[in-house]
Design a binder for these strands. Structure first.
Length: 103
DNA sequence: CATTTGACTTGTG
DNA sequence: CCACAAGCCAAAT
């Protein structure tokens, strides 16, 4: 079959282990789509509510959530991450510790 | 087909 | 650390 970019992205995100995170750019790269960080974001924006994709494990390159810190989505993602053992330090994630770049 | 948009990234000051 | 600009590229309008 002909896997769409979106499917590759899903697969990569799905491969992110619990307790780890990855950046949009990194996901794009691992999906074989260099410089398509935005496309990754767009995909996630279209994900249904009940999607099984661990979208919360995808953050931006600054180690922060790509939502305004006062939005609902922000809190939601932060909560999910903390539930998996990813803790925040001053609203930022330590990529040094949690960034997942493959096995 | 031209323009805008966006859950991005990196560099500069 | 924060603000702004430029780069980048697919999908939507």
């Amino acid at each position: 079959m002909t896997p769409t970019n979106q499917e590759r992205i899903w697969q990569v995100i799905h491969a992110i282990p619990s307790g780890k995170v990855s950046t949009y750019g990194n996901v794009a790269l691992m999906a074989g789509l260099p410089r398509q960080a935005r496309a990754v974001g767009k995909c996630l924006s279209q994900l249904p509510n009940a999607s099984k994709i661990p979208w919360h494990r995808v953050i931006n390159a600054q180690g922060k959530i790509s939502f305004p810190a006062d939005s609902e989505r922000y809190d939601k993602q932060k909560q999910l991450l903390q539930d998996e053992g990813v803790f925040f330090f001053n609203n930022k994630i330590k990529l040094r510790v949690y960034l997942w770049q493959g096995e």
